[in-house]
Design a binder for these strands. Structure first.
Lengths: 215, 215
DNA sequence: ACGGATCCATCATTGGATCCAG
DNA sequence: CTGGATCCAATGATGGATCCGT
C-alpha cells in the first residue's frame, strides 16, 4: 500500500475500514494473525499502519510524514474507550531544559488520526476521525506536560506516579519495571531513572469519541 | 566459563590456548563453526571472549571489567599481522569538545590482551600477551587522536581519509557506506556524517608483536 | 477502574572484525 | 597493500499498545 496523497485520501481510507473485521483486513494484506493475541499487544496498531499506507520507517517522525499525521488506535468495548493511549516515551534526561514547543508530546499530538477498534470478537474497525487539539485542549495538555516534566527536572522522577496530570499521565514504559534510562537529579548529577511514557487518559479520549459522534 | 580472578589467571588462560586449533576450541565450548567463515567476520573475537571468560555483556566497558583489560585478536599469516585492529567507533558528535583523557580510544587501549591467531588452516591460536602503552606510545596515539578528532570537530569529517594518522587511522564503520551519524559542522550546525571507527594500523601491531617475541 | 507491569517488532548503535578491488 | 566497504551478533531505545492485580 502506497502512502495516501493527501489528508482526504487518508481519512477516506480509514473510514472505509469501518465495519470490516480484523481477520478480514489482515487476510487481505497477507498478514498472519498472531498465535497468542494477548501477547501481541501492538498488533492492531501495526496492522492499521499497513492498511493505511503509513511510512514503514517512521522512527521518530509521524506515521505520515508528508501529511504531518500521527495514527492511533482506540480500543472500544460497550461503546466506551477501554484503555489509555500511549503517546511517546518521556525525554527524561532533558526534562530540565526542554520546552513544550519542542517536546515529543506536542509533535505527536499536533494532528492525530484516531481509528476505533471494537474489541468484541471478531474485532472490527469502527469510526475514524482526525483530531487537532483546540487551543483549550492544547493549553491543558501543556499544563500537564509542564507539571510532569518539571517534576522530573526537579529530580522527583522516582516519586511521580500515574495519578498526576489531568489528561496526560506518566507511566512506566519498557520491557520490565527494571528498565532504566540516564537522567539527572536536581543537582545535575547523573542518575538512572525508571523509563517513563506519556499516556492520554481514557477519560480524555472518551471525550474525543463523544464529540466525534455528535458531529 | 567464569571470569578470571586476576590478570595472571587471564594471561595463563590465554597462553594455554596457544597451539590449539579453532575448531577444537569451539568444539570444547559447544560452539558451532559458522557455515560461511568469510561472512562471520567477528567469530574469532567472540570465540576467544567465551574461551577466556570475558563479560558477555561488556557493552561500552572493557571485556574484563574487574581487571580493566580489553581483548583483541590479531590475525597472523606468514608470521606477520595481516589486518589493522578495530579499536572503537569515533564519537563524531562530540569531536569538538571531547578530551583524550575521556576518549573511548584511550579507555580501550589502557590495557589490552592481544591473542594472535594463525590464519592458515586449520586456524590456530598463537602468542598471547598483555600490552599497556608506554608513555611514548601513548603520546603518539594521543597526537593521532587529537589530529583526527580535531579535523572532525573542524567540520572536515567528509574529507578525512584513512591515510591520515601515524598509528591510528579513521575508516568507515557500519553495515554500509551509507551509514550516517549525527554530527556538527564547523559552525555548530547539525549534519549527518559518515560513521567512522578508529583502527590501529597493522604497522603498529606488527611492532608490538615483534617486541613481544624479543622478550 | 486504573496504576503499574509487561509484551512484541524494528531500527540504530556498538562491538567483534575481515573482505576485496585497484 | 591498504583504503574503503562490508558482514554478523547483541543490546538498547522507541513505537505499537494491552494485560492484570487490587
Amino acid at each position: 500500500m502506497e502512502a495516501p496523497a493527501d489528508v482526504d485520501e487518508l481519512l477516506a481510507r480509514a473510514k472505509a475500514l469501518g465495519g470490516r473485521t480484523v481477520p478480514e483486513v489482515a487476510g487481505a494484506l497477507g498478514v498472519e494473525l498472531p498465535p497468542d493475541p494477548k501477547r501481541a499487544k501492538g498488533f492492531m496498531g501495526q496492522l492499521v499502519e499497513r492498511a493505511l499506507g503509513a511510512c514503514p520507517r517512521a522512527g521518530d517522525g509521524p506515521d505520515f510524514p508528508e501529511l504531518g499525521v500521527e495514527l492511533k488506535t482506540l480500543p472500544i468495548a460497550g461503546g466506551r474507550v477501554r484503555e489509555s493511549t500511549f503517546v511517546c516515551t518521556a525525554e527524561v534526561a532533558e526534562a530540565a531544559t526542554l520546552s513544550w514547543e519542542r517536546s515529543r508530546v506536542r509533535r505527536k499530538l499536533r494532528r492525530v488520526l484516531f481509528v476505533a477498534v471494537e474489541r468484541q470478537r471478531p474485532w472490527r474497525y469502527g469510526a475514524a476521525w482526525l483530531w487537532t487539539p483546540s487551543p483549550e485542549e492544547e493549553a491543558a495538555l501543556r499544563a500537564d506536560w509542564e507539571e510532569l516534566m518539571g517534576a522530573i527536572g526537579a529530580g522527583e522522577v522516582e516519586a511521580i506516579d500515574a495519578s498526576r496530570g489531568r489528561w496526560l499521565q506518566l507511566r512506566p514504559k519498557g520491557a520490565t519495571a527494571a528498565c532504566r534510562v540516564k537522567a539527572y537529579d536536581a543537582d545535575g548529577a547523573p542518575i538512572w531513572a525508571p523509563t517513563k511514557g506519556f499516556y492520554l487518559r481514557a477519560s480524555f479520549t472518551r471525550g474525543l469519541l463523544h464529540a466525534q459522534r455528535l458531529r
